[in-house]
Design a protein around this nucleic acid. Structure first.
Lengths: 218, 218, 218, 218
DNA sequence: CATGAATGAGGATTCATTCAT
DNA sequence: TATGAATGAATCCTCATTCAT
């Protein structure tokens, strides 16, 4: 007949027979889609189309759009916590460790814009999906305790002033690093400055680092 | 002949015949809806239902969902810029002016969570609607120049260190104040600390203020 | 979570699972609807209701109202060209072949009033949909070349006068046969003569045939 | 938002105050609109916008979309009949009169494509509006009687063959002339020949004339 | 495991028409 | 006579999801 194109699947869809690969494939595409368009704006059809498998598999593996989105979130946080753990800050001198943490946090956000967008989306939804996660263990972070011990050591060593609250300090690190990515577009529209442009990376990184370190100096 | 005759009006519907009120009513409801559910998740039907008028009027005045959303954005930014202008920071001593700006920015975000959410939504859309606004004048801010002159005066007076970049400094203010609202839910889910809870307002406000002021101290 | 679960199917709805039948069913109903009410006047809802399937399937198979209408057009022209090809005029004596073509054309239009109406509708739209058809091949006709060769043979055999242009002659055949159906209603309203009434078929058919044959007689 | 609208004008203030002009203006725009988009496709809003007056006036003068369309139809037919009457064929020699009628009919259709389109639209609607017209007198034509008398005189004078039916002959004239305009677009799409292009006017006009005259030659 | 067909319930948008002034 | 505001009822289209095989 004519232009009747019922989202048919690709004829040569290779039957993977590798559930883990299939799931990872779906997850990767879904992550992009949700990061790009939000939860409501994300289309299951679209995800299915860009996936090597069919739409039915999404439901087979993830149950629902909601389930898929949760899986995407979980994967993002697991990856982030994994990277944090790799830092091995415990053994390092406090100031150096703190500097490393700030730089890592900045670099992570800059290189994981999609993740930042997922977090934005999730906050729009008041962390509904995150809270509904069966196990938040992979999401939980020990970073606060870590910062606490680093600050304490720094105070002892006389390189950090007394009275810095670890939670407050970490939230400030997160805020400053996150904002560069999260608000890139509105800031650019209003102030004509693209925080996300690569030529501005280093400067903004330095400014954030300096501000944070000065704020805890003795 | 093929007569299609509209019925009487909705039972309790008051025919305002006051376009400005009607538009303002729609805008207020729409602002809530988009802040709550995002652009894609926001429902025109829902907005119409919570409005004194009908869905038809939304299209009569705003043309489309897109147009309505743009109007909502514009209104938010106009309100923010208006409030900024009311501060009259120019005449004040530099440190005091900066403190005032920081406090204002923090308070504004805390008391305008819906606005923060709109900005989040708009960033998800890469500021597409903001950029498409016919007149961005009400959106543009002179705050950077203001900060610049305050910093300069502070340097002259010896109360602020040299080398602080105005744009960087303002972005940091914005980041720290914005984040408290924008990421309230994910932070709470992960760290068990509610940045948005009223009992934490003052503490976080103080921490931010201290950090920012220390970072520019001589 | 936000589960939206479709109910059971329509009580009497038979799930065909036979795409070709489903598509053909939709096409048949749509053809009637568009012929009856035009493109703008044709209602997708109405088509869906008279179909064995649901409105959703129209979009599943044809993508849009436009796509459906195009498919209807294409089907009509394919049918017409198919019928033309069945005539096998090549082997027949020229005058007989021409007479056969005229009679066929008249009869076709008389018995395919809906098709004529579709062509009217399409001309109102300046053949926009026809031109946009991805494959116009089934629409293209070889009838002009056929008429040309018949006229040539007729001239050689001395039964047809020289100087008759094939395209002009065929357009006249088409015009005379088409008009009987296309303008049936306005002509009847103005002259009180119903070209489409069955008791007038034969007379009009004879008049057209005689006129056309006389016009090419030597 | 915009400033409040001015009050209504005082009765008798400067205004058009020329109902006939206003009506004619509306009618002209409506004629174009309906010819372009058909009855269902024609938009009252669109007509109002292109008119010097407001939408309300359309309803004031014509009552409804239907009434407006009827008025448009009536105006077209009145104009056509008026032009026919201007021909004064009665006094002329029969063949010359017939040739004049054919040429007039051809030229009229070619130069009144919008009228042809209105007739197409009306036939799609099975002349429903034409039939519903309160007075069809302006629509009725005496052309058949005219042709009848011309044919009769031609037979008497020996320049026209016996047995030509006046109604049939006139319908053929109409068909051939009308088709050039009505089916311009589909014919062009299928055969690649633009009957409506000015460079093809004369040729098609000649072909039609020759065919019609030959068909009634003794 | 896999797939293509199928679907109910919305979702945004448009239309002719009337009302208050 | 004139107009801007207002509206109910469609109208086209989309979405997440399930069924038969």
């Amino acid at each position: 007949m004519v232009a009747a194109k019922p989202r048919a699947q690709r004829p040569g869809a290779t039957r993977t027979n590798d559930p883990e690969r299939t799931k990872a494939d779906i997850l990767a595409v879904a992550s992009q889609e949700f990061a790009e368009s939000g939860y409501s704006g994300g289309r299951v059809d679209e995800i299915a189309e860009r996936t090597k498998t069919s739409k039915r598999m999404i439901y087979y593996y993830f149950g629902s759009k909601d389930g898929l989105y949760q899986a995407v979130l979980l994967e993002y946080y697991a990856k982030l916590r994994g990277a944090e753990a790799e830092l091995h800050l415990e053994g390092q001198p406090p100031l150096q460790a703190i500097q490393r943490l700030i730089e890592f946090t900045y670099d992570w956000h800059i290189t994981h814009a999609d993740g930042v967008r997922l977090v934005m989306v999730e906050n729009i939804h008041r962390a509904r999906h995150l809270s509904a996660l069966p196990s938040i263990e992979p999401v939980n972070s020990k970073v606060i305790q870590l910062v606490e011990s680093m600050l304490a050591r720094g105070v002892t060593e006389g390189v950090i002033r007394k009275g810095v609250n670890a939670l407050d300090f970490y939230l400030s690190i997160a805020a400053l690093c996150y904002f560069s990515v999260s608000n890139r577009y509105t800031i650019n529209a209003i102030f004509g400055y693209d925080m996300g442009a690569s030529e501005n990376f280093a400067a903004r990184r330095g400014a954030i680092l300096e501000m944070l370190l000065r704020s805890i100096a003795p």
